[in-house]
Write a protein that binds this DNA or RNA. Structure first.
Lengths: 251, 251
DNA sequence: GAGTGTGAAACGCTTCACAGCA
DNA sequence: TGCTGTGAAGCGTTTCACACTC
């Protein structure tokens, strides 16, 4: 009855709550109400309480939640009590950025291996770690007990890189290359596709422009009587990924 | 009756289909069946057909779809017939990567402005475009008719950068900073949060480990009799963001 | 009184299955 | 016969509303 059946969408939000809670803890807060926390995380309070109910009942009615307790429990559910060693493959612009990324929170995701094919890069330390060759992915990954692989290569190389990561025992992969990866069932993949994210934004802009047109433009047109909600409906933005992904759908 | 009510999730997938179709077109394909296209895009064929039905009925029963027709229609729906000029704010590692990113597909999202606070960077061209100061965001954005802003700054700067982008007339924002942005209703935001993506992966690994434990481990424990599905259920991975995402949730 | 925890209703997305057309 | 297009069923997520507890 541990991590029974938490909805995927809720998992993504729990990670957000965790970040917000960490910030609150640093500023000395000891308790929060669902109202405060949900506002800071950009969701409504009912959803927040529902999400937290999946991790357990750690609140005090009439008072709120203890920040430290929530942090610990969410970390437990997300599996952040273990270390997840990370390898970055493809040390181009994006790979560099990822290798130096301080954003992988203190506890959690140390970058322990880098790979590329460029002879000028092999052996050169980036962010303190020397770059190895793509061919050495399997041995290096199993030796250093890498569990997370990040693919930041051109799309043509992505599948073969992926196969080698899997051969090296990697359990999950974050894929920045715009291709659909084939992996065995025991490997988890998430995709972050910048171009897709931008195109989704483009769609929303276009839809609004169309609405505005059909609206104030010429109402006489055949289909002008649009069912407009209109404009500002909900405020909650941006999902995990679901798609998401980064939800990069940068995924 | 233009872009009436297409589900968010479907929009994200349409962008993926578009990429796959472009690849097919380059290789000389003129028609595809829903089966082929869905396989290449990593979804099932029923979902694909449903998604395409939102853009219209452009297939031929018994045959399939004309690649060029689908490409045009999806581009129309996604609003890719207009140009969307992009500004990147925060020219650190990630900002560099984004400024040089060739992945913004040919038609679509030219990067036209860069911003940072570092005096050593101001005026220096990156990817052919000189870096301007954060304070100049509003005038530069309106002058160059920027419609998309990408925030790649540290989290502390993100909200103020966001406000300036909005002041400059930017209509949508792709946010890589791990903060919840407040924007007026007419501005669309998508978030790409690397740390969140990794934590989602972490959760799935942890869940599997727990399952395996409860499974083959010691079945005598109080809660060991888990309702295990088990192992390999669906194969469809990773959503848009709805997630999220880069989706990057990176999303 | 204040605020959590949660069944139940509402909603949206996915899958199914088959009618319809080339 | 083959494959698209789509109503209807199924399922997961969100929202509601209120019982319950401090």
């Amino acid at each position: 009855m541990r991590a029974k059946q938490i909805p995927e969408a809720a998992v993504a939000r729990l990670a957000v709550y965790l970040r917000v809670l960490s910030g609150m803890a640093e500023q000395g807060a000891t308790t929060v109400s669902s109202e405060e926390l949900s506002a800071a995380a950009g969701v409504n309070s009912a959803k927040l309480r529902k999400d937290l109910s999946y991790v357990g009942s750690y609140g005090t009615r009439g008072v709120g939640y203890e920040v430290q307790v929530l942090v610990s429990q969410i970390e437990r559910i997300l599996g952040l009590t273990r270390q997840h060693r990370v390898a970055v493959v493809g040390i181009g612009n994006l790979g560099h950025a990822l290798a130096n990324y301080g954003g992988f929170p203190g506890r959690g995701f140390p970058v322990e291996a880098l790979f590329d094919t460029d002879p000028d890069l092999i052996g050169v330390p980036v962010g303190g770690i020397p770059v190895s060759h793509l061919e050495d992915i399997p041995p290096v990954c199993s030796e250093r007990e890498i569990s997370v692989g990040i693919i930041a290569t051109p799309p043509t190389a992505a599948q073969s890189v992926c196969d080698r990561l899997v051969a090296g025992g990697v359990q999950c992969i974050l894929n920045f290359a715009p291709v659909v990866l084939r992996v065995p069932a025991h490997v988890e993949v998430r995709k972050v596709d910048l171009a897709v994210e931008l195109q989704i934004l483009s769609f929303h802009v276009a839809r609004r422009a169309d609405d505005a047109l059909g609206n104030q433009g010429n109402p006489g047109l055949p289909d002008a009587g649009l069912p407009i909600d209109n404009g500002t409906k909900g405020d909650g933005r941006n999902g995990a990924g679901t798609d998401g992904g980064l939800g990069m759908v940068v995924r």
